[in-house]
Design a protein around this nucleic acid. Structure first.
Lengths: 259, 259
DNA sequence: ATGAATAGTCCCATATAGTGGGACTATGCC
DNA sequence: GGCATAGTCCCACTATATGGGACTATTCAT
């Protein structure tokens, strides 16, 4: 499902090369000497210098001393206040709003920060009781008992996950909360196997939730989206259709957001 | 001295157009419809769409809904932690270090923040007594009694300057500090006329300082650089050579930093 | 709902515009 | 001092971007 290798896109090789060069420079803030870049990108030096010249004129990069490039001041100014989390929320909100409406549920986008889940987007369907679900945007919740948290924990590198599991204690939010590290580990394994997570009243008594990861081109996911329903109204047979919609939304967002 | 209009730079019209487009989009975060951009840039729509496509693939921009573009997530991630002030300091430090050495002085770069001067760079010549001058990087000082502060106040829009002058009181740091708003206004006028500011022991008894603005292509300056000496060792006849060096440095930086 | 207006996509013959080899200078390093 | 690497410049060639126009998708007003 990852690797959304788009077609070659004809008609602007030059721009593409320039932008690829910019990305290389932006990645390590210009630590790599151009000679290396030339080798990596298979371009002659004269071309590279022409490209850097254009990037510099446009203010995207600036030179400091020999061999050292940086992000240009104009670009830094234009992007002041832009954060990865903010952009992620901006880009995902429309699709999540639509998803929430289509499923009559609450849709969330969350990422992991300091072993807690941070909710970046929350969109409630109009049909839900006002104020449904305890979450709020830009607030944090424990990871071990939320759908999004379980998804992100499930794909953590093993060392990280072990550290998290050892870090307890896991406080029970409801009588269904999983508090035993061993059982939590098993749950995470099945999350990875089934490619989705479920929270069946583990965080609040009347909350049922399904969550799936957002894939960033082959990398382990760092963001996940979820659908939440009032648990008392939940029909098990609805799960498959909700999961399908959730996955479709995740696939679309993954492709849209990560080039 | 502003308007460092560089030569046409032949050989990459395509890249230039693409980057110009990106800058337009980055400026207003994609609020402007492409039709308007097409008119502004004198390019046919089909070309613009090809360019946006390339920018999108490279991760610099992303689309959200129709007519709305944003900074792409990959770019936001790559530039996480980059701030205008940080880049400005990075770009200016080498030249300031050299300037400090050449003049046997302390060289500063400062900007205005909340009516105070924030020092972004401080470079002391090795020949100065260790710990010379009270300033430290990333700390603030009153604007009305420092060289850099006077320069930035002098070029403030009149409304802003009037507000600042009305905002007193101006506390005397030494017996030479200018504390009368009317006298301060006159001083600022002469700063603008002479294109440099002097602080003759107004902030500390043994501190003499010359400051000039950095020009960002015709805009009123938002940053300034200065040279500071121990006042007791100051020879009036040295001023002109120091000023010349200071101005040369400012011109070089202005050209280098602002495209 | 229906239609008009605008956004976005695709195609292709043409010549414009980028290419890269190489010769050259500047700069930094030993 | 001299060597190695960074950065600049030039130019004939052809790969490459161009833009007109036909077409579809989406949005908005009525």
């Amino acid at each position: 499902m990852p690797n959304t290798a788009k077609p070659p896109a004809p008609g602007n090789a030059s721009l593409e090369k320039g932008l690829a060069l910019f990305n290389r420079i932006a990645q390590d803030h210009g630590q790599t000497p151009l000679k290396t870049l030339a080798a990596d990108m298979g371009l002659p030096r004269s071309t590279l210098y022409r490209l850097t010249g254009a990037l510099e004129q446009a203010g995207l990069i600036a030179r400091l001393r020999h061999r050292h490039y940086t992000i240009g001041l104009p670009l830094a100014q234009a992007l002041h206040g832009i954060t990865p989390a903010g952009q992620l929320a901006l880009l995902c909100r429309p699709a999540l709003r639509q998803l929430a409406r289509a499923c009559g549920a609450a849709a969330h986008l969350g990422v992991m920060e300091n072993d807690m889940v941070t909710y970046l987007v929350k969109e409630n369907a109009a049909t839900l009781p006002a104020g449904f679900s305890i979450s709020r945007e830009n607030t944090q919740l424990e990871a071990y008992c939320s759908g999004i948290g379980k998804v992100l924990l499930a794909w953590l590198p093993e060392a990280e996950r072990a550290r998290y599991l050892a870090g307890g204690p896991f406080v029970a939010m409801t009588e269904r909360t999983i508090t035993d590290p061993q059982r939590l580990r098993q749950t995470l394994e099945s999350v990875q196997a089934q490619q989705f997570a479920r929270d069946d009243g583990e965080i609040a008594d009347d909350l049922y939730c399904l969550a799936v990861p957002l894939w960033a081109g082959g990398q382990p996911p760092t963001a996940a989206i979820s659908l939440s329903f009032p648990r008392h109204a939940h029909q098990p047979q609805d799960d498959s259709s909700h999961l399908a919609r959730l996955r479709a939304c995740a696939a679309q967002l993954s492709a849209q957001i990560f080039p």
